[in-house]
Amino acid sequence: MEEANFVFNMIGENWIAFAIISLLPMIFLLAYALIAILGELKISAFIQERLGPMRTGPWGIIQPVAEVVKLLQKEDITPDSANKPLFNLAPFIMFAASYAGFAVIPFSSYFVPSGINLGLFFLLAVGSLGIIGLLMGGWASNNKYSLLGGLRAVAQIVSYEIPAAMVILTIAVMAGSLDLQEIIRQQSGWFWNWFVFGGSGGWIKIIFLPFSFIMCIIYIIASLAETNRTPFDIPEGESELVAGYHTEYSGMKFAMFFFAEYANMFIVSAIITIIFFGGWNSPFGDFMGGPIWGVFWFVSKAFVFVFLQIWLRWTLPRLRVDQLMYVSWKVLLPFSFVCFLALSLLVMLK
């Protein structure tokens, strides 16, 4: 097995290497957030036959920078009756939780910040840490809308973890590993080796192709719910709860929530890419293969799913709380059980 990290190869295992490795995802994240915010603005505008921001820079491409600067300048208000320590801590927990997820994301075969062999499990565990931030923010704001939003968020994310965990369990069974690099390596070759098409193997997998495909859809739906995006943006559903758990937040703390949401969007897109769409593998065999192109493939595949999330957001209305639970417990969970059984059978037959 080759060395998983080119930084260690280049400058050896010292503290500078560790600093670079932990900062690289942050740099990527900042650049990604700017692109994603602009993408959200522009895609929503084009879908709605508008032009979107046009004044800041040519075609408004500096708009996200302007928004970040605006948020930095804004007054940071802490409500009088809020629980101040919790109120101030919540956005940081939220952001830390989503940033922690980046620790195991393999951007390329030669770069993963931390190549632990429990990567999939780590993502699942850390992904649910953000709930604490949500609940803290909602509770500490001392606002009825925030409280309702926070409670809804917790109920929603906790229940959607289960179908998501079922999907991840299936992948673990199919790949026989929880190491993300290993999972990706198993999907190398042409795109029909991806787990969304049943993974590598003989013709027998064609029978099970619908199951793995449904599994992928289940994970996409569950991931939408985990990132609080439409149609599952109930915790911050603006028509009911004004802005949900972050109603009382302003300035930089609001920006942290915002940033965390976009970071989460990327993380779930990355997970979908890794477990179903072959991670950094080129879809066409050895065409444009290798570690450098790997980054390109990984990021572009993840961006497709970010685009999918934005696209869905500007298409669908929002579900109600009880319907959200219905979808989770009565639709996604049974379907994921059935698919789990079927795909386990496939593994046995292979």
Binding site: I47, Q48, E49, T230, P231, S239, T315, L316, P317, R318
Partner: peptide, 16 residues
């Protein structure tokens, strides 16, 4: 009404 239900896009189609 669509806007209340969370669908933003029909709102702008109708306003157009």
């Amino acid at each position: 009404f669509g806007l209340d239900s969370g669908a933003f896009t029909p709102f702008l189609y109708y306003f157009r």
